[in-house]
Design a protein around this nucleic acid. Structure first.
Lengths: 195, 195, 195, 195
DNA sequence: CATGAATGAGATTTCATTCAT
DNA sequence: TATGAATGAAATCTCATTCAT
């Protein structure tokens, strides 16, 4: 549609930030345009609709996310190393796509109902499968505790990681790898002192 | 405003459920009224505005939450027991006020900008202080690990607990106390097998 | 309808005051009910509608006004004495029916379109005729200046008198008769010193 | 707000006419839009709200009015000439801003309660001061009668002039200057023949 | 007589989207 | 590419009125 993909990406970045901050529904096209220094109508030269901006933001993020995840999953690592790599990769994605992650967290639940966002469910299922499999392998291998409800543990790890997008600010004190290390330390070994 | 507080509470319960499910902005007054079996305009006999419903839902929840928290905090418990009690209390609140908690998670961030929702920030600050103090006491007492970034640990525990509202369903397999116990087990001792 | 005409009159008095202060359209039935210490719905025990309250207020006022005017007009006075008597009578009506007069001033113009308020036009025409006739007789008799546009003079006198309802407060420093005297002095002799 | 001040002024002119004719509250946004040949929602491209249209209409009028008044008041005229100039200027403003004047007459009383219309009270006070001072100077100089209540005379002159907006039609038989002359003749010298 | 709780019509406002320039 | 000015659908809200109790 638009002959300038850079401008497109630039605008999507701006939109993502506004969506993340105010929520998709509460964000008016006008606010996005304001942030981009243009008028609301002008956005329609670049995009079909507000929703297609959202769609592209989420799709771009998920595509990159799965690039990273697939690399990890196909590396033939043990369950503990897989978990560590997935968590680290997740924090890297948060670092790169913080607004998209925040949007995903807040909006995906009611977007999946729409055909157009089918890929969100697909992704979610692959996601769940990857994590559950990793955890189960870990339990089978004796590296993860067998006394825990595995679905609960899955949600625990999943939420623990992604919710960080709500407070993480790139360029703050911690690199994504550092945060990942600390999170992993807590998730794997707990916060209490071993007695 | 309305002279019948029961009807009011009833309607707020209905509204909270719709808000939680669809998001505040995506929820129309008409949907709430439909759920309540009345016409949209009729809601305005009981409430000033859609926003004041939201306000009352969140305020009621936070008031009850702090009742529970304050009881815990004034009980003179040690840091580990305090943490356990706070987590357990949190899951109980999620059990009792699941919609309100879900709304709080999704909407509070962009509501705090409004004067009317000032109390959300206030609560957030008390919240942060309560948790940080508990963690710090725990580190000082040698029951929590000293090698962790305490603010990171705070966010970890905080988010981990509250995000559960997004999937928790009262009446499901687990009681809030059971979930609390499993969560605490993971948070305190980690998911890996001790070597 | 209502078995208690006193309550009715009392309520009409309250309604008239609110109508006068806020304007008919801007006045909600609820505001009237508040002022009367009851709920909005309760007014409908006494009156058919908001409009019928307005109708009764204006009709009562005009009925009394014409009682007074007719007495003056049938007294066989000269034009100057007639004018003085009409003005004095007008200020007495303002004293007795200030809210009704104020409402009449503000609302009659767009009410006359409605069939139900036909009597407003009727009254207005009788009014105009009475005044114009009086002024014309005065000019013919040589007591009023012949160099003035008689319709302009009519409007001048008419407005001059009735607009006082917008600031007059019964029980203030001046009795209606005193105000009438001063107004007549200005209208008849002007405010400048004769040279 | 809107980048085209001409369109804005045009629309305000249309709105003012409808407000003047039907009253502010009885005027629907849809009526204004109809008169302007557009849809109701389209007005909100140019204005924040119905009320802000009213606000701008009255503010524009008062600004121009005070331009004229200030010129008169700073001209160093004697009291009688000042009064004549103010009255003449007033009729010119009625000629130019008839709808705004009519709106002002009908609505200002209940608008002053709102903070946003504070400037109406401010103007009213300057207005009162200008007239009272002029009248007092005239009494002191012996050109106006000393036997009249000066506040009463002020109201008399003030109302007498402005209420003319309710019946004045530009382009009718009389120019504003002619009407002013006749009014002044009545106000200064009265309508009775000097004996 | 009055209340409490609605109804239902219609008002104001919002906002994604369109389109001629 | 972007602007300026709309459209039109739908949202929130208002309020006179009704009616069972």
């Amino acid at each position: 549609m638009s002959p300038s993909p850079e401008r497109r990406r630039e605008l999507l970045g701006i939109a993502a930030e506004v969506f993340a901050e105010q929520g998709y529904n509460a964000t008016t096209v006008r606010k996005i345009a304001d942030s981009a220094g243009m008028l609301a109508g002008s956005l329609y030269y670049h995009f079909d609709s507000k929703e297609s901006m959202l769609e592209e933001i989420l799709r771009t993020f998920l595509t990159e996310l799965w690039d990273g995840y697939d690399t990890v999953l196909q590396a033939g690592l043990g369950p503990r190393e897989t978990l560590e790599a997935l968590v680290t990769e997740s924090f890297r994605e948060i670092d790169r796509h913080r607004p998209a992650v925040a949007i995903y967290q807040k909006e995906s639940k009611h977007l999946v109902a729409q055909e157009r966002f089918q890929y969100l469910s697909d992704s979610q299922q692959r996601f769940e499968k990857a994590w559950l499999t990793t955890l189960e392998r870990g339990v089978a291998d004796g590296v993860f505790r067998a006394d825990l409800d595995i679905r609960l543990a899955y949600r625990f790890v999943r939420d623990t990681v992604w919710v960080a997008a709500s407070w993480y600010r790139p360029g703050g004190g911690h690199s994504p790898e550092e945060i990942a290390r600390q999170y992993l330390s807590m998730v794997l070994d707990g916060i209490s002192v071993r007695t």
